[in-house]
Design a protein around this nucleic acid. Structure first.
Length: 270
DNA sequence: AAAACTACCTGAGTGC
DNA sequence: TGCACTCAGGTAGTTT
């Protein structure tokens, strides 16, 4: 499941094949993604990718005629392939590149998004209300502390809300709260500045560490989906219900918050 | 205004 | 073996 580190890994994997290169042809096999792939995506054909970057979990590829926006949703992936590689089930969109290779979008659950837009990408409805990048300069403990005053919602939901900060999905929310020693159910508005400093640091730490690990898979990127296999063995809380806390040895608990599983150590997280 | 809930989707896993 | 069922998760949009 692509969280921010997987999206970043994907960007690093595909960008060398895209930046400065022309898209020759766009083929849409299944337009019914989260929203329909617009017919105007054809305008991308013939355009040169000027630059590509990530905003939250959105990937953006700019051309002179418009910007390609891609979100991988829950199960999406991008791969660079030779056109001779047969199309797999759930390969929904293909971008033929100058030089002969193809960029293919694969997404079994079709929660992903492919859009084509004009104008300033930051003003696009999907991007306009996003909070700061967790690895950027505008995100720190002071920011979280200030923003959370008066909020009654659980801190876990607070940091998973992309209006507050982008890129913190369920897994990394659990991991960061464990690292910071904060109980996920605690009211966001009642957490001290000092503890938010720890939380902001933990968020950056888990995301950066995971990007580093994703980076080690870059070599294999063209062959594999880009999902880092090492990832699971480093988890401290997520998906570890009943297993011993790596810090105190007690049982990791699982509860449900806002229809999502939350994993935490009741001894280490208060 | 803020918080909680719903819908979208398929594959993996479970139990009978 | 096969069927029915549940669960997972990102996030925009809707409801409370």
């Amino acid at each position: 499941m692509p969280e921010l580190p997987e999206v970043e890994t994907t960007l690093r994997g595909v960008l060398p094949h895209l930046q400065g290169h022309r898209i020759r042809e766009v083929s849409v096999f299944q337009p019914q993604l989260r929203w329909p792939v617009p017919a105007e995506i054809d305008d991308l054909a013939g355009q040169r990718i000027v630059r590509g970057y990530r905003r939250g979990k959105y990937l953006l590829f700019e051309t002179a005629a418009g910007t390609l926006l891609i979100h991988l949703g829950m199960s999406g992936s991008l791969r660079i392939l030779a056109p001779s590689v047969p199309r797999r089930k759930h390969d929904h969109v293909s971008f033929r590149l100058e030089g002969g290779k193809e960029l293919r979008f694969h997404d079994p659950r079709r929660f992903g998004t492919i859009q084509w837009m004009q104008g300033d990408p930051a003003a696009h409805p999907l991007l306009a209300h996003l909070g700061p990048e967790p690895l950027g300069p505008d995100f720190d403990g002071a920011y979280l502390h200030r923003l959370s005053r008066g909020r009654a919602s659980a801190v876990k939901a607070f940091i998973m809300d992309s209006r507050n900060v982008v890129g913190v999905g369920n897994i990394y929310a659990c991991e960061a709260l464990f690292l910071a020693g904060i109980r996920p159910s605690r009211a966001a508005g009642k957490i001290s500045r000092a503890r938010y400093e720890a939380l902001a640091g933990a968020i950056r730490e888990v995301l950066a560490a995971s990007i580093e690990m994703g980076g080690t898979t870059l070599r294999d990127f063209l062959n594999e989906s880009g999902e880092p296999g090492y990832f699971k063995q480093t988890l401290r809380a997520y998906d570890r219900e009943g297993e011993p806390c790596r810090s105190c040895g007690g049982d990791i608990l699982r509860v449900v918050q806002n229809q999502r599983s939350t994993f935490f150590c009741p001894h280490c997280q208060r």
